[in-house]
């Protein structure tokens, strides 16, 4: 089954501020924060299904998303230009308009 990725490299996204029960692989430190799609690396099995043996579910698009320290820790004056890249499943991401 092919899954068409919703986002392209260069697009701005926001990680959902969400705390669902069960096994998830979205680190807390990126939730609610804005980043930029670096690369599409999916589709991959959804860890939230895989952890419970649900291997019949469709794979999901996964993205490398880059965050600036300035966005993640604005209160920390050190090295604000440094960056973190995390690999996130599409259902954790929301589009960000050009104005936000």
């Amino acid at each position: 089954m092919t899954v068409r990725p919703r986002y392209r490299p260069g697009q701005r996204v926001r990680v959902r501020r969400w705390d669902p029960p069960g096994h998830v692989r979205t680190p807390f430190y990126v939730r609610g924060h804005r980043g930029e799609i670096v690369r599409v690396i999916g589709p991959m099995p959804n860890p939230e299904d895989l952890a419970y043996g649900r291997t019949d579910r469709p794979p999901v698009p996964v993205y490398r998303v880059r965050f600036r320290r300035r966005e993640l820790w604005p209160e920390d004056p050190r090295a604000q230009e440094d960056t973190v890249v995390a690999d996130l499943c599409e259902h954790w991401l929301e589009p960000v308009g050009s104005g936000s």
């Binding site: 692989r25 979205t26 680190p27 690396i41 991959m44 099995p45 860890p47 996964v62 490398r64 880059r66 090295a79 230009e81 440094d82 960056t83 973190v84 890249v85 995390a86 690999d87 996130l88 499943c89």
Partner: peptide, 12 residues
Amino acid sequence: VRIEVHDSTAEL
């Protein structure tokens, strides 16, 4: 020199 930390959160 910008530091980029790569967090291995998926299957890569």
